[in-house]
């Protein structure tokens, strides 16, 4: 079923990471991406891998969920691994057959790149999607970017649009599921036949979907106006974001981690990417 896609799936919880301020989590995500790309030596990759395991542990998200999140990029991972294995030149020749040469360096590079991709995807999704509700996330983004209001960027409106869009993704997916089921009940077939006939088979889904999306949008607009929504000007919030000790602590740890990775790169290069 469509609903089984974990894209943008939030798992409510009470872990340390769940309780961090969304702004902190956005900042940590940016840090984490920088750290992932600054890791060069084989030791820093080991540290990186350890850190992601710890993050998953602290967030209390099940490994099954994490694996399910990685699965969609499996092919990209395999593809980059193959490219790295066959195209990296080095000194330690392991295998040679006609024009195919595999070096030890190639295999290590492939493994390190694999770690990098896994860490990148898992780390960002733990911070952003699994432990932060879409509402918190847009709140965080709005606050984080609010200085841009001074130069005329409509930060509030963009954040509102984003949160509405996020809010309606599950609804629309559910609706699509329902309409597909209704048409299947009338014998519609979406999975066999030529490409042209499959595209034509989508019409009975897309038209009702558009009709209902417009209806929902209109109803929502009316409901918002009924509650006197006039944009961000003078709007107060029910939940005011505040930084706590936890947040500073998390950012401090990440700064240390970044410094450690850079030091490892310099003083314990081992194998370098």
């Amino acid at each position: 079923m469509l609903k089984d896609i974990t894209l943008g799936q939030f798992f409510p919880g009470e872990s340390y990471i769940h309780r961090l301020d969304p702004r902190t989590k956005i900042i940590l995500t940016v840090f984490y991406i920088i750290i992932t790309f600054s890791a060069k030596s084989i030791f820093s990759f080991a540290a990186l891998f350890l850190s992601v395991v710890m993050i998953i542990g602290i967030s209390k998200i099940s490994f099954k969920t994490i694996i399910r999140g990685i699965r969609p990029v499996l092919y990209i991972m395999i593809f980059t691994m193959i490219l790295n294995i066959f195209l990296t030149n080095g000194e330690d020749l392991l295998f040679h057959w006609k024009f195919i040469k595999i070096y030890k360096e190639g295999i290590i590079t492939a493994l390190l790149v694999l770690v990098r991709i896994i860490v990148l995807i898992t780390g960002t999704s733990v911070f952003i999607t699994y432990t932060t509700s879409p509402i918190q996330l847009t709140d965080g983004i709005e606050r984080l970017f609010s200085p841009l209001k001074r130069i005329g960027v409509p930060v509030h409106d963009l954040a509102m649009m984003m949160s509405l869009a996020l809010r309606f993704i599950p609804t629309l997916i559910e609706e699509t599921d329902r309409i597909m089921n209704a048409q299947k009940a009338r014998g519609a077939d979406f999975s066999t036949g030529s490409l042209a006939s499959r595209v034509r088979a989508l019409i009975p889904i897309i038209i009702p979907l558009f009709v209902s999306a417009y209806r929902r949008a209109e109803e929502l607009a009316v409901a918002m106006e009924c509650r006197c929504y006039r944009g961000g000007e003078g709007r107060t919030r029910m939940k005011i974001l505040t930084y706590g000790l936890n947040d500073f602590f998390a950012i401090f740890i990440f700064l240390l981690f970044l410094a450690a990775i850079i030091l490892i790169n310099i003083y314990a290069p081992g194998f370098k990417l």
């Binding site: 329902r178 309409i179 089921n181 209704a182 048409q183 299947k184 009940a185 009338r186 014998g187 077939d189 019409i203 009975p204 889904i205 038209i207 009702p208 009709v211 209902s212």
Partner: peptide
């Protein structure tokens, strides 16, 4: 799909399936 012709199901709020 041949079963679906034998057991006809009208889903909840079926008016939204018209196209």
């Amino acid at each position: 799909s041949s079963i679906r012709f034998k057991v006809g199901l009208v889903m909840q709020y079926p008016e939204y399936q018209l196209f």
